[in-house]
């Protein structure tokens, strides 16, 4: 790390001390032109990824999946089956890699931990009164501690969107700092819930806020509001992590979640990562997909590349 980035980093770390300083900084970030950002994202979506490149991309995408179930109806049996699938997504093909992580509610963490122990597949738990975040701070922190204690090594927290939209940036910042502390050694993914932030300017500000407060990953969505991850939102977040590393030397990961249903979509995101932040982020440690049905489509496409015929959903496990 250069001297400049060290001093920039310490200057930036001061921002969290004052509401005024945070606001001045966040509102001083360059604006995002909506039309231009959406056109750029769409343009990246026209890349044609075929044959060997496609095979490589599919395996990478499988390794980046946070296989997720976040339902009121989740049971120990359901999440254990999901964890088993995470370990061996395609039981018929041992060359198929395992996914990046399994993502569940805190109450389900112990059941998943049993299955994943020692496998290299991470165990992520949503916390902080997911998905709305509308609970007292003590409860959100207790939620976080409980998930880590039960075996989660990644915590997906939600930011306080009410406070953010009301302009109380320091409150949002302090909550992330407190959650980071409560999470201990677990990796902290900060969910911005971009569908509720409404503008790309807000997405950029929330991304910086989360990174300044110590988030290890920034994540688009809970999957529980109508608009989840979109390519332009992810593009703006990738630009933010790129600029943040340039300013501070610290690399932060990105996780689009929700709405990524098929291989074609996933590959578009990988192209976007490749051409926006480069190969440093083309790794499950730095880029993840929050998804459930995506995995089966990746598996079907993978089979198509190896066998030459299109498969059908009946040939893959439903978990």
């Amino acid at each position: 790390m250069t001297a400049t980035t060290t001093s920039a980093r310490s200057e930036l770390s001061e921002l969290g001390r004052s509401e005024t300083a945070l606001r001045t900084f966040l509102h001083g970030l360059p604006g995002v032109d909506q039309v231009g950002a959406e056109q750029r994202a769409a343009q990246l979506g026209t890349r044609s990824i075929k044959t060997t490149a496609k095979a490589q991309a599919i395996d990478l995408a499988i390794r980046m999946v946070d296989l997720t179930t976040l339902e009121g109806a989740d049971t120990p049996g359901k999440v254990r089956a999901l964890a088993a699938k995470a370990l061996r997504p395609d039981p018929a093909d041992p060359s198929c890699p395992h996914v990046g992580a399994v993502c569940v509610y805190p109450a389900m963490v112990p059941h998943v931990a049993e299955v994943l122990r020692g496998s290299g597949v991470h165990l992520a738990s949503v916390a902080t009164a997911f998905p709305s975040g509308q609970a007292p701070l003590e409860i959100k922190l207790a939620d976080t501690r409980a998930a880590v204690a039960a075996g989660a090594d990644e915590i997906d927290m939600v930011i306080n969107r009410g406070a953010f939209l009301a302009g109380r940036y320091k409150e949002v910042y302090d909550e992330i700092v407190a959650t980071k502390e409560a999470a201990g050694d677990a990796h902290l993914k900060v969910i911005l819930e971009t569908g509720e932030l409404a503008t790309y300017d807000n997405v950029r500000r929330a991304s910086w806020l989360a990174m300044l407060a110590g988030g290890d990953f920034i994540k688009t969505s809970t999957g529980k509001v109508p608009v989840a991850a979109t390519p332009p939102v992810t593009l703006v977040m990738l630009e933010a992590v790129r600029d943040f590393r340039a300013a501070t030397g610290r690399q932060v990961g990105v996780k689009p979640a929700g709405g990524i249903k098929n291989t074609k979509d996933a590959i578009k995101y990988l192209v976007m990562v490749n051409e926006t932040v480069g190969t440093d982020w083309l790794d499950p440690d730095w880029f993840r997909f929050g998804a459930s049905s995506l995995l089966n489509d990746l598996l079907m496409q993978r089979t198509k590349l190896t066998t030459g015929t299109y498969s059908g959903p009946d040939y893959f496990t439903l978990d």
């Binding site: 044609s48 990824i49 490149a53 190969t279």
Partner: peptide, 8 residues
């Protein structure tokens, strides 16, 4: 890491 194969 991620080379695009020819797509003519």
């Amino acid at each position: 890491m991620f080379e695009y194969a020819p797509a003519p």
